[in-house]
Amino acid sequence: MELTHDELAGIVDLFGALSPSELAVAGDELAFKRGAELDGPDVDEALTAYRLVAFDPDAITDRTTDEQLLAAGPTAFPALPDGAEDLPHILDVDACTPDRAALGAVVEERFRADAARAVAEDDHDRIERLLDVSYDLETWAPVALDGVRDRLDTAAGD
């Protein structure tokens, strides 16, 4: 069984935020319910695509954990996989609501670093993708990316 990036985002969104280990347990539970094996969810790819975002929970949510947490990101269209509605009854995880403005600031910082790296490496595919992400991110959280988008646009035209 494989979970799409949007299904990963849907599972995370069901709780507000989950740690990577909690997300892995959720995936295992879904696979067990289906009598299937889970092909490890590719959280790293979902993070790269901004379908999921990682953050330190201290200032962003009321959940305490030693791990980073994952939340549905600005490019995600969260979708619940079959059977996911039972996960809150199966997992011993308290739901939370990450502060969107604080989460947006964390994602903006990461986005700016990704954009600078893509421009420095002259990675046109990544630059084009980040241009799209910039609009999603501004809609998703109270951030302004005009300046970085201008740099990406300039680099895309080179």
Rank of each mutant, 00 (worst) to 15 (best):
L145C: 11
A116M: 11
D122N: 14
A116R: 13
T139W: 08
G147T: 12
D114P: 06
E109G: 10
R112P: 12
L130M: 06
D123R: 15
R117K: 15
D123N: 15
I90R: 07
F111W: 13
A101F: 01
A105V: 05
H124T: 13
E108D: 08
Y135E: 12
R117G: 11
D122W: 15
D122P: 12
V119Y: 08
E108Y: 05
E109C: 06
F111L: 10
A101P: 00
L130V: 03
R112L: 15
A120I: 11
F111Q: 10
T97S: 10
E108M: 01
R126N: 13
D92H: 13
A105L: 04
E108K: 07
I127P: 10
A115D: 05
R149I: 11
P98C: 03
D146V: 12
A105C: 05
V107Q: 01
I90D: 04
A115Q: 04
D132H: 14
I127E: 05
A95E: 13
R117Q: 15
L145E: 07
R100H: 04
F111T: 08
L137G: 03
D122T: 13
R110N: 11
D146N: 12
A115E: 02
V106Y: 03
R117H: 14
C96H: 08
E109F: 09
C96S: 13
A141S: 12
